[in-house]
Design a protein around this nucleic acid. Structure first.
Length: 858
DNA sequence: CGCGCTCATGCA
DNA sequence: GCATGAGCGCGG
């Protein structure tokens, strides 16, 4: 039997399967999805088995055997392996990169090189022949290695001063040899556990026979007689206030055993979750739930786009739909944006499904995440709630995939593989005949467009198949054929919930024209109306949420005399002032310097920090409303583990009057006493050079407005802006999704942007501008050539132009954009174009990155 | 990617 | 004449 293996070498030349022989002894272990160690050239690397076959037309002198199987059970399911192939072809990354993205970081290979001594390395009497020819130092090395049995190469080099040549020579002589090991970065956590002897009589008897001075040991035996279950060693020690030696000596007497037992690190172990029962559904919820649950019951691959206004009770619909799925013995995956994976959210799922839920998010430690993942592997859970990568949960019977806040841009991964979790979810669901629910109060244009789109199959049928006839049956052809099913797009079905639960109205939204405020002499960051509203809430002891969305574009530093702006010396970006460290920092490379007091350019002392960050708002609030209690939530205050939760709990307990934060306060929070929401600068996002700016602004304002008046107390929203007439702001203020989407769709169509046209962004970067420009230029030419050759008419090549951030970490950046229509993938074209620049990449250390369906055009 | 093989260049 | 170093192509 042979295995096709994708090796852990992310390079163009190795981005294909290699055949290995599966030794007889391994046959019951090796399966599709297994992690294996294989010899690769002169070294040993990790790889994934993607296929097993018995083809015997392989050159037996070339094929090597698999050297080890890494896991008891394959960490990937066959459908995930297939999905990895699809991801690598769709998003143009190495297949290994896609495979690696599917397993927890803890299982990423760590390569260790160890040195061992050959059996006869000391020669006959140790001082003759070969051995006598060696340097004293080398003899010492051999002795050292021999003593230790096996030494890590690096530590040997360190110990004997770094002369690799000496060791190499010893290896060439056959006195030492190298063993390569592949290790996991993380192992299952083990806890020493005490197992009392089975025989209770024996324990009693032993207790009476122990000498009186062994009082502690007697105490342990008595305790174990009362509590015969296994107990953690530490717990036992703590309970009885004794030392490990006592227990150890009992173990030596054979009265108990101490063993290492694998345990799960449970991040939620210390918390109990109140069990919740299904809530009665409102008519609208009932209808939506009915549609979803019927599709789940029918085991049909369907995609629902659930448009539900904020507070319409989407989560309850999710919970009950999941219950339907579990009742059928199938599993469910719930994706939420990292930022809204709040304890509140987790609580609702744990409360309903208890131990059946695994939680995956980035704040878990490597070990915790690994353990949650293992619960999925071992089928101990049937629901996963997590951020983007949870879409790869190794379930085998998926019935339902829910993507909450489906419009969130964080579902797109910005590093390779640059996949979009929404699209991967649809592909994965089609493998399982599962239902996808995309939920949002502000569905993305892409998803809305999906409700209009005709399925690719229907279109192909209409146009008479692929251009150029049937593809030849090559390996690539076979892969493409396997992808067809995954590329099949069912039209999305739109479900709508217009009403908030219990008929609470959406809060009125007031737009405040900040130009008008300025004209009438108010230079503060608070408009008069918002100021009054906050004051009122303080009086009534109600709470306020304030949003200031800076997205990293916080204050820049400028000299008022000469106009000098502090910039990063390595990136084309302004430096940002950080109050806490009194430093100015680059957001892209981390470069920092001390706060400016004099202008480095003209020597003037008129340095001013422009733009308003959350820190300044906090300061200002303190000045305007003495005694006000403010909680500030942004990246600076929530990096610490658990801090996010801590602040929110404080706010919930009304230990603060105002919750001030960046977009993290806009998502999913639900506090009964919040009656006022203020967006301080609604147009920060609007002014970004991105065709999605209006969409993002509309989404953000709608989301944040949804935080007010969710319970008995009515709410009110103030939106401060310099662009009060902009349609995104007006539509958001009227809670009018329909008018926004109509307007935005029209504009996108007119300007040929997504979702009507699709984009592929190719970014080239290099230290030197001339070479970079030349290469980018020929990249565009090559793309145009290939587009023409392939007869694709609806493909447009734009650029090259300098990227919006023209330099990062001393590397200049240029980009080409491909705009094209329809579902037909043009990845083959891009792949070929990029391939023809392989030599430039290598020779000149040029970097070329490809982003299919980019979310950010930086 | 990392290795070793090849070939060019430099000094005995 | 061989030793040292950067570039190339290969890996099952």
């Amino acid at each position: 039997m042979y295995a096709k293996v994708i090796v852990d070498v992310p390079a163009k030349q190795t981005n294909r399967a290699f055949d290995y022989f599966v030794p007889e002894a391994m046959r019951s272990w090796v399966a599709i999805g297994s992690r294996v160690g294989v010899p690769f050239g002169p070294r040993k690397v990790q790889g994934f088995v993607i296929d097993l076959h018995t083809r015997s037309d392989l050159d037996p002198s070339k094929v090597k055997p698999i050297s080890e199987v890494m896991d008891l059970y394959p960490p990937l399911t066959p459908d995930l392996v297939q999905l990895a192939g699809w991801i690598s072809r769709t998003y143009l990354c190495h297949e290994i990169t896609a495979l690696q993205a599917m397993i927890p970081g803890a299982l990423k290979a760590k390569y260790e090189r160890h040195v061992k001594a050959a059996d006869d390395s000391l020669g006959g009497n140790g001082e003759s022949g070969q051995f006598a020819m060696l340097l004293p130092e080398q003899r010492e090395m051999i002795r050292y290695v021999r003593d230790k049995g096996s030494v890590q190469l690096e530590s040997l080099l360190e110990k004997f001063g770094s002369d690799a040549a000496l060791i190499k020579q010893l290896m060439a002589e056959g006195l030492l040899y190298e063993v390569q090991m592949i290790k996991d970065r993380m192992a299952a956590k083990k806890v020493l556990t005490v197992f009392p002897a089975d025989n209770a009589e024996l324990l009693k008897e032993a207790e009476s026979q122990l000498p009186a001075r062994a009082a502690k040991q007697k105490e342990v035996l008595r305790y174990l007689a009362d509590h015969p279950a296994p107990i953690k060693l530490t717990e036992l020690l703590h309970e009885l206030g004794i030392s490990a030696g006592t227990v150890k000596s009992l173990a030596d007497k054979g009265l108990l055993t101490i063993k290492e037992v694998e345990v799960f690190r449970d991040p939620y172990a210390k918390r109990s979750f109140a069990k919740t029962r299904p809530l009665p559904l409102m008519p609208e919820q009932q209808q939506v739930y009915g549609r979803i649950s019927r599709a789940v019951a029918a085991r049909e691959h369907r995609v629902f786009l659930l448009h539900g206004v904020t507070g319409s009770g989407k989560t309850e619909v999710y919970l009950q739909s999941i219950q339907t799925c579990l009742d059928q013995g199938r599993e469910a995956i719930v994706l939420v944006p990292e930022i809204s994976l709040t304890p509140q959210m987790v609580e609702r799922f744990k409360g309903r499904f208890g131990d059946q839920v695994a939680v995956l998010h980035s704040r878990l430690s490597h070990g915790e995440r690994y353990d949650e993942w293992r619960k999925i592997m071992l089928r101990q859970v049937s629901v996963v709630i997590g951020a983007r990568s949870a879409i790869f949960a190794p379930f085998t019977k998926i019935g339902l995939i829910i993507i909450d806040e489906e419009h969130e841009s964080s579902y797109k991964q910005e590093e390779s593989p640059k996949y979009h979790a929404r699209d991967v979810a649809v592909a994965r669901a089609s493998q399982h005949d599962a239902v996808v629910v995309l939920g949002s109060a502000t569905p993305s244009l892409e998803s809305m467009h999906g409700t209009l789109a005709v399925s690719a199959a229907a279109r192909r049928a209409a146009t008479g198949g692929m251009p150029g006839g049937a593809p030849a049956i090559t390996e690539a052809g076979a892969a493409a054929a396997a992808d067809t099913a995954l590329n099949e797009r069912v039209p999305f079905e739109l479900l709508t919930m217009h009403n908030r639960v219990e008929g609470r109205p959406l809060p009125p939204v007031h737009i405040i024209d900040m130009r008008e405020e300025l004209r009438t002499g108010n230079r503060s960051m608070f408009s008069r109306a918002l100021y009054k509203a906050i004051e009122e809430r303080l009086h009534k002891k109600e709470q306020t949420v304030l949003l200031l969305n800076r997205r990293g574009y916080s204050t820049f530093v400028m000299c008022r005399t000469c106009g000098y702006v502090a910039q990063c010396p390595h990136c084309d970006i302004s430096l940002t002032f950080h109050q806490s460290s009194r430093a100015i920092r680059c957001h892209y490379c981390g470069y920092a310097e001390r706060e400016l007091t004099v202008c480095p350019s003209c020597g003037s002392e008129h340095i001013r920090h422009f733009g308003t960050g959350t820190q300044r708002v906090e300061e200002e609030l303190g000045k305007l409303f003495p005694g006000i209690r403010v909680i500030r939530m942004d990246v600076d205050t929530t990096t610490e583990k658990g801090s996010h939760e801590k602040w929110l709990t404080m706010f919930r307990n009304r230990q603060a009057d105002v919750l001030l934060g960046t977009q993290m306060v806009a998502k999913g929070l639900d506090f009964p006493h919040v009656t006022l929401v203020g967006a301080l600068a609604a147009d920060t996002v609007l002014n970004l050079p991105d065709f999605r700016a209006a969409e993002r602004t509309f989404q953000l304002l709608t989301q944040v407005a949804g935080r007010a008046g969710r319970h008995e107390l009515p709410g009110e929203v103030f939106v401060q802006t310099y662009a009060p007439e902009h349609y995104s702001i007006i539509s958001a203020s009227r809670h009018d999704y329909r008018s926004f989407i109509d307007k935005e769709m029209t504009l996108r169509k007119l300007h040929q942007y997504p979702p009507f046209h699709r984009l592929i962004l190719i970014t080239l970067s290099h230290e030197q501008i001339p070479l970079l420009m030349r290469t980018a230029e020929s990249m565009a030419v090559r793309l145009k050539e290939l587009a023409k050759e392939s007869g694709l008419s609806q493909v447009e090549i734009l650029g090259p132009v300098a990227s919006p951030i023209a330099r990062i970490k001393d590397r200049y950046r240029f980009q080409c954009m491909i705009k094209y229509r329809g579902e037909a993938s043009i990845s083959g074209l891009v792949k070929r174009a990029v391939a023809s620049f392989e030599d430039v990449e290598r020779q000149h250390k040029m970097t070329i990155s490809v982003d299919v369906d980019p979310q950010v055009l930086m």
